[in-house]
């Protein structure tokens, strides 16, 4: 089957600043891909390039059978839904209004979301167990709740590919675990209907928890890619994070990464 999203020998960066080069990767339907690397390794720049928000310095991104640069924003938005890191907007929108914004690419230029759009948005919130937040002020929700609202917005977008930029980065320990478990449930459900999820993280434990295929990034390049259990081992992680790390298996069978603390 054809690839959903494909990057060929990509060089990424802003203007004259080169952030990464030689990046080749692809996302197949029904796949969970985890972009793993330390902060500052170019994950966010790569994401923005993959979504056509930033032009590549060299190489090309293909969305379906066409270069992403030849597609309109609405076309892209119907195929890729983006979940940014939770943020506070300047105005007090209701959570449901924020989720409804996911319907924009399906409306005409002058369109307004209608009854079916509201139903889709409420369904998406219900799916994530946050239907009770619909009428709440988005700006006053907790970080974890906001992140879930943004994920619901991506679901309401009904795109076959969902891209999440460090979805747990700004959350506290409890919220991280909660959001991650919802993402895991979502991912297994989405993958069953042939949707794909790409997410970035600096936490290798999350790649194990999601049982994802991993693209391991290091200094703007790809160090390795493959199943988490195959490529994430002590030596590679130690090289990427520049400190001794071991991978151990707990008694329940989960793999966890342990930095050596001296």
């Amino acid at each position: 089957m054809g690839m959903m999203l494909e990057a060929r020998n990509l060089s990424i960066g802003h203007g004259k600043t080169l952030v990464g080069r030689g990046l080749t990767l692809s996302v197949a339907p029904g796949e969970v891909l985890c972009l793993l690397g330390p902060n500052g390794c170019g994950k966010t720049t790569l994401f923005r390039t993959l979504m056509g928000l930033l032009p590549p310095l060299a190489g090309q991104v293909f969305l379906g059978d066409r270069p992403i640069s030849t597609r309109t924003r609405a076309e892209i938005a119907r195929r890729i839904a983006y979940v940014p890191q939770a943020h506070a907007p300047p105005f007090p929108f209701e959570a449901l209004e924020v989720v409804l914004m996911g319907r924009t690419a399906r409306l005409g230029a002058f369109g307004q979301p209608g009854r079916t759009d509201r139903a889709t948005a409420l369904d998406a919130m219900d799916h994530l167990g946050i239907a009770d937040l619909a009428g709440r002020n988005y700006a006053q929700l907790s970080g974890g709740q906001r992140q879930l609202v943004l994920i619901a917005r991506a679901l309401a977008q009904e795109a076959p590919l969902i891209v999440m930029d460090e979805p747990t980065a700004s959350l506290d320990f409890g919220n991280q675990a909660q959001v991650l478990s919802r993402i895991a449930a979502l991912v297994s459900g989405a993958v069953e209907d042939g949707r794909s999820v790409v997410l970035s993280t600096h936490d290798p434990d999350q790649a194990f928890a999601l049982d994802a295929r991993v693209v391991l990034m290091h200094r703007g390049g790809i160090l390795a890619q493959g199943a988490a259990s195959d490529i994430l081992d002590g030596p590679r992680l130690s090289a990427v994070y520049d400190m001794p790390i071991t991978v151990e298996t707990t008694t329940s069978g989960r793999r966890v990464c342990l930095p050596a603390v001296s």
Partner: peptide
């Protein structure tokens, strides 16, 4: 008046609006 919904989306920021399908 016609662009009222897109103006909401734009107030989430340029990059997010573009990711949501608006030619910002």
């Amino acid at each position: 008046a016609l662009l009222r919904w897109r103006i909401n989306v734009l107030s989430m920021g340029d990059e997010e609006a573009r990711a949501l399908g608006v030619e910002a």
